[in-house]
Design a protein around this nucleic acid. Structure first.
Lengths: 333, 333
DNA sequence: TTGAAAGCGGTACCAC
DNA sequence: GTGGTACCGCTTTCAA
């Protein structure tokens, strides 16, 4: 920038004014000269320098637990869209591996002094790590940052809350309404609150009709497609034994379940019904189309970013409702 | 940091040494004091400040044309994995909208002074914008940055080159080998080099057997699932007229094609075969499983990052080979 | 309207 | 080993 100023024959202060900041108090002639010089020298403002001088960045950080997963990539899509609209650059980190990793990521990200940190799908449940995370986030907010959680922690921060419990409960009711009585469930490990809420909702929904699921028909697996397949194989191994419908706590798992069933010679929707949760795009590409619970993922991302930018100091909770969609994978019995 | 130094009773220089930099030339006692003070004050180094002082960041930028697309999210997964391993933070931007947008993004990203800028799936083909992009990237490299392109431009930068042409050609051969003779093709607009290469390869592959595709059986559509569906509907409208197989230039389009066919009362694989390209995860979840050409997307991302970090000055090209996988959607005739 | 100069939060060279 | 100090690239008073 010094070079630009020199080339334009003005002071650096003036150059700064026209290149960024308030153009209005600069004589037109100088504006032009500076702009010309900048173009000539192919000048790009050094964002870090700006950040340090201004005391604030135009960055937002997003932590997901996997980009490959349509669930997160849809949310990421919403977040980036909103960020872009607000003129923010988004930095994305994948915490997949472990809670420790997530904690470390947040710590690093904090160093960038982003305007906001958005956490989607954290898997932290271990009290120790969880407190450490909370403290880290708190310190960040203390320093002026804005924190948004997407449907997970019960921590005192802005939260976009997906109605996992309610959606699953509605789903259970709807399925019973279709005539199903004997269920199996594919879930993730207990540490994952999203999975837990969906299970609880589903169970309670069935409970309304005095239906229960036997222990042996509840199988835990990884929270992804592979996990779904593995769980389905496990169910087949244990013996489906009259099970009419398998509920998987998310669509990618449900799709894995369907594929594994097919591989085992069972026709999904016919021999055994399958239902999932999230209503991700591919849900309608499989055969039969997957019954699920719609979660407006992209919108969740948008909301998260909006929340992040609204400088409400009180930690708000934005609820996002879910909606059952019945499709071919759960025909009326 | 000044506070930390003061609290520890040492100079800021020493604090800097222990917090970052070389710990070895500091007396153990002071190391401990500084560390303690830092923990107490919940100190986090200001990355921007470090960047400006050191003259370099630990950031890498990734530009994709859509996060929702499994193609890009797989690549993004690879990139972030490699970045993480190298201790880099990745900044992701979505250029979806337009070439101008992409150009603008690169310009902004450049301001962050990332170590590398990785461009995946750019859609720029308009000579004007394209040159502007090239110039922008060149200036960036001139300033010490490292540029990596993923399978698209023929620009003088590091490139991870996916063998689109060869893969499509192999696919064509394999399909003819299965007994197919009458083809239709679903492609994106001409500006998209990836699509173009795949079309060319496929055509040339058929050409080896003196098979051609009539103009009316080639339909252009958006490079996504919706585009695929629309194209399939268009084909049905025009009259399939004996078409035995539809080749879509990527899997998401192919999946869209299958779903649309099914909606039109046609059974994919039976009434009309379908083949795609990329071999994304969901390819094996649809029924029948989709014949495709495997592209090791995640690995592509890893390679890209490696290329970015290898400070080879000569612009290298890393070829990534592709591999035909025949599945149920294209049964032997 | 413009320029000089004092930072912003660190790093690193240099002398002690 | 340690501290003083000159920057890094830019913003923003403050005076002129």
């Amino acid at each position: 920038m010094r070079d630009v100023a020199r080339a334009a024959g003005v002071s650096q202060a003036t150059a700064s004014r026209v290149l960024n900041g308030s153009i209005r108090n600069v004589r037109q002639e100088n504006v032009d000269r500076v702009l010309a010089a900048a173009a000539e020298l192919d000048y790009t403002p050094h964002l870090s320098a700006q950040a340090i001088a201004r005391g604030s960045t135009n960055t937002a950080a997003l932590v997901v637990s996997g980009v490959d997963d349509p669930y997160f990539s849809s949310i990421a899509g919403g977040v980036t869209e909103a960020a872009e609209a607000a003129g923010l650059i988004v930095t994305m980190a994948v915490a997949d591996r472990s809670p420790e990793r997530e904690l470390q990521i947040v710590r690093t990200l904090r160093g960038m002094r982003p305007r906001a940190i958005i956490l989607a799908g954290s898997r932290i449940d271990d009290p120790g790590t969880r407190d450490a995370l909370a403290q880290e986030l708190d310190a960040y907010r203390e320093a002026g940052g804005s924190v948004v959680l997407i449907s997970q922690h019960d921590l005192p921060f802005h939260t976009v809350s997906i109605d996992n419990y309610g959606g699953a409960r509605q789903l259970a009711r709807a399925l019973v309404g279709l005539g199903y009585r004997r269920f199996a469930m594919v879930r993730a490990h207990v540490g994952l609150k999203t999975s837990r809420d969906r299970c609880d909702g589903f169970m309670d929904g069935l409970g309304e009709f005095n239906i229960d699921i036997e222990e042996r028909f509840v199988v835990k697996a990884e929270f992804n497609r592979r996990g779904g397949s593995a769980a389905a194989r496990e169910l087949v191994r244990r013996g489906l034994d009259g099970t009419e419908l398998v509920f998987a706590v998310n669509d990618v798992m449900a799709i894995g379940v369907m594929t594994a069933f097919r591989d085992a010679g069972l026709v999904p929707g016919q021999d055994v019904a399958v239902a999932g949760f999230d209503d991700i795009g591919p849900a309608v590409d499989v055969v039969p189309e997957l019954t699920s619970v719609t979660v407006p993922l992209r919108r969740v991302g948008l909301h998260a970013m909006e929340l992040a930018l609204s400088d409400d100091h009180a930690s708000r909770i934005v609820p996002v409702s879910t909606n059952v969609v019945l499709r071919g994978s759960t025909p009326r019995r």
